[in-house]
Design a binder for these strands. Structure first.
Length: 302
DNA sequence: ATTACATGGCGTTTCCGTCA
DNA sequence: TGACGGAAACGCCATGTAAT
């Protein structure tokens, strides 16, 4: 009688392979949280897991060991990668295996996973690490601001194509693809705010930023028609009553560039647009850190 | 040389199935 | 139900490695 028979879980892939360490692990709450987080953010590094997920461990050694155990059991896969542009010292970065994704599917009922994320690390993994850090900041600091973090909608869920049937497939404006959506509101309230996040790449071009903005404008100009459909497609856990778009730059200069690039767009902007920096969003996400496109000179709250 | 990251060894503790 | 024993997990320490 082993765990597999008892909980009817999918079979770890490497059990079938000979010569590899095979190992069964009973998942604990923290392990499940890790799998769910990996599903949300695709890639997480050891420091993040230690800081936000494996909090019961007294020392780092145990974190490493637990992660290795989960990897040997076939739930997750690790890579040695630099975790920022400035730190060339590599760190362990983890992602789900197909088996791990199946476990998430068993927990959640749905799963968005691409097997290529496991076999080959794409260049945007650092982008994902930054997204994870930002989202955690909004999540953990909500309470002190008198708010509640309701949900994080991943890019895979937030992606939406609303092209009409007779429209050309070439029309890139009839789709939105934010990095994700923060859903935030007062506790026990259904009046929630949905913030579509755009974390700009280090060398974001004006062309790209403008196109993103056009896509949001197109979407929100048809909001009466599209928002009900979008709500159904995404399946928001909490009703979203108001919308904003947030561009996040990697530093102050980049944030200012985004504002310059979008200058003039506020005239026909269909949704309020905010710009801030990664550092500010990490430090004080509910503070006066947002420059609105309609008034770029002053920093205000969201 | 120092710092940060990662793994292995070892003694102790915790967990869990088995059996009386 | 409680005692028992083996396996797994934990904390501490030592060691290796790569970057600064």
């Amino acid at each position: 009688m082993n765990n597999r028979d008892m909980n009817n879980a999918p079979l770890p892939p490497q059990v079938k392979k000979k010569g590899r360490k095979m190992r069964y692990v009973t998942l604990r709450e923290e392990d499940r949280q890790l799998l769910l987080h990996l599903h949300s953010f695709i890639y997480l590094h050891r420091g993040f897991i230690e800081k936000y997920i494996f909090q019961t461990y007294e020392n780092v050694d145990s974190v490493y060991r637990r992660l290795r155990t989960l990897e040997e059991a076939g739930y997750i896969k690790s890579f040695m990668l630099p975790i920022s542009d400035f730190d060339h010292r590599p760190s362990k970065v983890y992602t789900l295996t197909m088996f791990g994704a199946e476990i998430v599917e068993q927990m959640r009922g749905v799963v968005h996973w691409n097997r290529r994320w496991t076999t080959q690390v794409p260049p945007w993994y650092q982008h994902q690490l930054m997204i994870a850090e930002i989202v955690k900041s909004y999540e953990l600091k909500a309470e002190t601001a008198g708010l509640e973090f309701k949900e994080w909608v991943t890019e895979a869920r937030a992606f939406y194509e609303f092209r009409d049937i007779n429209e050309s497939k070439k029309n890139h404006n009839s789709r939105i693809r934010p990095d994700g959506i923060l859903v935030i509101g007062k506790p026990n309230s259904d009046q929630n705010l949905g913030i579509m996040i755009e974390m700009e790449r280090s060398y974001a071009t004006r062309e790209k930023t403008l196109r993103k903005m056009e896509q949001f404008n197109e979407f929100f100009s048809r909001k009466e028609e599209l928002l009900p459909k979008y709500d159904k497609k995404v399946g928001f856990e909490h009703p979203v009553k108001a919308w904003k778009v947030l561009f996040i730059g990697s530093n102050d200069a980049k944030a200012k560039k985004i504002l310059r690039d979008l200058k003039g767009e506020e005239n026909h902007a269909e949704v309020s647009v905010m710009v801030t920096t990664r550092q500010e969003a990490n430090m004080d996400p509910y503070g006066d850190i947002y420059r609105y496109l309609s008034d770029p000179e002053t920093k205000r709250k969201m």
